[in-house]
Deep mutational scan, measured.
Amino acid sequence: TLFEALYDYEARTEDDLSFHKGEKFQILNSSEGDWWEARSLTTGETGYIPSIYLAPV
């Protein structure tokens, strides 16, 4: 399942991933609670993103 960003997000740590509204992600690991490891389909970068900023596509 792909997810789309509902809002912009600016990374706060080196493990976080910055993204823009409308960016799409492949989720790599969603077992860490509210922060999911994801790969951006726009940039190819991976990192942790807040799941509350996402909606399934």
Score class of each variant (00 low, 15 high):
residue 1 T to K: 13
residue 1 T to Q: 13
residue 1 T to C: 07
residue 1 T to V: 13
residue 2 L to G: 02
residue 2 L to A: 06
residue 2 L to C: 08
residue 3 F to C: 05
residue 3 F to N: 01
residue 3 F to K: 01
residue 3 F to V: 05
residue 3 F to G: 01
residue 5 A to Y: 01
residue 5 A to H: 01
residue 5 A to D: 00
residue 6 L to I: 11
residue 6 L to W: 05
residue 6 L to M: 11
residue 6 L to G: 02
residue 7 Y to F: 13
residue 7 Y to S: 09
residue 7 Y to Q: 12
residue 7 Y to H: 11
residue 8 D to T: 06
residue 8 D to A: 08
residue 8 D to S: 09
residue 8 D to Y: 05
residue 9 Y to L: 04
residue 9 Y to K: 04
residue 9 Y to A: 02
residue 9 Y to G: 04
residue 10 E to Y: 10
residue 10 E to N: 11
residue 10 E to H: 11
residue 10 E to V: 12
residue 10 E to I: 14
residue 11 A to W: 03
residue 11 A to V: 02
residue 11 A to L: 02
residue 11 A to K: 10
residue 11 A to C: 05
residue 11 A to E: 03
residue 12 R to Y: 08
residue 12 R to D: 09
residue 12 R to T: 13
residue 13 T to N: 13
residue 13 T to A: 12
residue 14 E to M: 10
residue 14 E to F: 09
residue 14 E to V: 11
residue 14 E to S: 12
residue 14 E to G: 13
residue 15 D to R: 15
residue 15 D to A: 13
residue 15 D to P: 05
residue 15 D to K: 15
residue 15 D to M: 15
residue 15 D to E: 12
residue 15 D to C: 11
residue 16 D to S: 15
residue 16 D to Q: 15
residue 16 D to H: 15
residue 17 L to Y: 06
residue 17 L to C: 03
residue 17 L to G: 01
residue 17 L to P: 02
residue 17 L to V: 06
residue 18 S to K: 04
residue 18 S to P: 06
residue 18 S to R: 04
residue 19 F to Y: 03
residue 19 F to E: 00
residue 19 F to T: 04
residue 19 F to A: 06
residue 19 F to S: 02
residue 19 F to L: 07
residue 20 H to W: 08
residue 20 H to Q: 12
residue 20 H to P: 05
residue 21 K to N: 04
residue 21 K to V: 09
residue 21 K to W: 04
residue 21 K to T: 07
residue 21 K to A: 12
residue 22 G to I: 01
residue 22 G to W: 05
residue 22 G to K: 04
residue 22 G to V: 00
residue 23 E to I: 01
residue 23 E to H: 06
residue 23 E to W: 07
residue 24 K to Q: 13
residue 24 K to V: 14
residue 24 K to A: 05
residue 25 F to N: 00
residue 25 F to E: 00
residue 25 F to Q: 00
residue 26 Q to E: 14
residue 26 Q to D: 07
residue 27 I to S: 01
residue 27 I to F: 03
residue 27 I to Q: 01
residue 28 L to V: 08
residue 28 L to I: 12
residue 28 L to F: 06
residue 28 L to N: 04
residue 28 L to S: 04
residue 28 L to D: 03
residue 29 N to K: 08
residue 29 N to L: 06
residue 29 N to A: 08
residue 30 S to Y: 12
residue 30 S to G: 11
residue 30 S to E: 09
residue 31 S to C: 10
residue 31 S to W: 10
residue 31 S to R: 10
residue 31 S to L: 13
residue 32 E to S: 14
residue 32 E to Y: 13
residue 32 E to N: 15
residue 32 E to F: 12
residue 32 E to C: 11
residue 33 G to D: 14
residue 33 G to K: 13
residue 33 G to F: 10
residue 33 G to T: 13
residue 33 G to V: 12
residue 33 G to E: 13
residue 33 G to P: 15
residue 33 G to W: 10
residue 33 G to Y: 10
residue 34 D to K: 08
residue 34 D to V: 09
residue 34 D to I: 10
residue 34 D to Q: 09
residue 34 D to A: 10
residue 35 W to V: 09
residue 35 W to R: 15
residue 36 W to K: 02
residue 36 W to M: 04
residue 36 W to E: 01
residue 36 W to R: 01
residue 37 E to M: 15
residue 37 E to G: 04
residue 37 E to N: 07
residue 37 E to Q: 12
residue 38 A to Y: 04
residue 38 A to R: 00
residue 38 A to V: 15
residue 38 A to C: 09
residue 39 R to D: 02
residue 39 R to P: 01
residue 40 S to L: 06
residue 40 S to F: 03
residue 41 L to I: 09
residue 41 L to T: 08
residue 42 T to Y: 09
residue 42 T to P: 01
residue 43 T to H: 04
residue 43 T to Y: 02
residue 44 G to L: 07
residue 44 G to Y: 06
residue 44 G to H: 07
residue 44 G to T: 03
residue 44 G to C: 08
residue 44 G to S: 05
residue 45 E to T: 08
residue 45 E to R: 14
residue 45 E to A: 12
residue 46 T to I: 15
residue 46 T to Y: 08
residue 46 T to H: 08
residue 46 T to Q: 11
residue 47 G to Q: 03
residue 47 G to I: 05
residue 47 G to F: 05
residue 47 G to A: 04
residue 47 G to V: 05
residue 47 G to D: 01
residue 48 Y to M: 13
residue 48 Y to D: 02
residue 48 Y to E: 03
residue 48 Y to F: 14
residue 49 I to Y: 01
residue 49 I to G: 01
residue 49 I to N: 00
residue 49 I to Q: 00
residue 49 I to A: 05
residue 49 I to W: 01
residue 49 I to V: 15
residue 50 P to Y: 14
residue 50 P to D: 08
residue 50 P to I: 06
residue 50 P to T: 04
residue 51 S to L: 07
residue 51 S to E: 04
residue 52 I to H: 14
residue 52 I to A: 15
residue 53 Y to H: 06
residue 53 Y to I: 07
residue 53 Y to N: 04
residue 54 L to A: 03
residue 54 L to M: 10
residue 54 L to T: 02
residue 54 L to F: 11
residue 54 L to V: 12
residue 54 L to Y: 01
residue 54 L to H: 00
residue 55 A to F: 10
residue 55 A to Y: 09
residue 55 A to V: 13
residue 56 P to C: 05
residue 56 P to Q: 10
residue 57 V to E: 06
residue 57 V to M: 09
